[in-house]
């Protein structure tokens, strides 16, 4: 089970990371933007696991574990913030929240 070179994995991870980044930049819906951030984190996880496989040590797995934990924590707070925004603006569009500027 080990014929795939590292560079393929990394490329896949980077593509996913890019897709997530573009999602963050372009989508207006805060929920979708947040999903895109989750995609970015998953891309990093993929890269970490690929490195771990290449090196044959499990430190990368531990790091991925921490990232999942952090993602969960962020999800809780982030969704709570989105709820709060919705309560004020009746909208979850990011560009509707722009009272602070200049």
């Amino acid at each position: 089970m080990s014929g795939i070179p590292l560079s393929w994995w990394l490329t896949l991870g980077t593509v996913l990371f890019g897709v997530g980044t573009i999602g963050v930049l372009t989508r207006r819906n805060a929920l979708v933007v947040f999903m895109s951030i989750e995609l970015m984190l998953n891309a990093v996880n993929l890269i970490l696991l690929a490195f771990a496989r290449q090196r044959g040590d499990e430190h990368g797995h531990v790091l991925a574990f921490f990232i999942i934990a952090v993602a969960a924590a962020e999800a809780a707070v982030g969704l709570a913030i989105i709820l709060s925004v919705f309560r004020h603006k009746r909208s979850v569009n990011l560009d509707d929240v722009r009272a602070l500027k200049h």
Binding site: T21, V24, M40, S84, L94
Partner: peptide, 24 residues
């Protein structure tokens, strides 16, 4: 709330880059 939202989204976004670097 707007401050929290902006800080949160950009902070999480920046975290993504930090982790990408950390992975490398």
């Amino acid at each position: 709330i707007e401050a929290a939202m902006k800080y949160f989204f950009l902070g999480a976004f920046a975290t993504g880059f930090l982790l990408y670097g950390l992975a490398f």
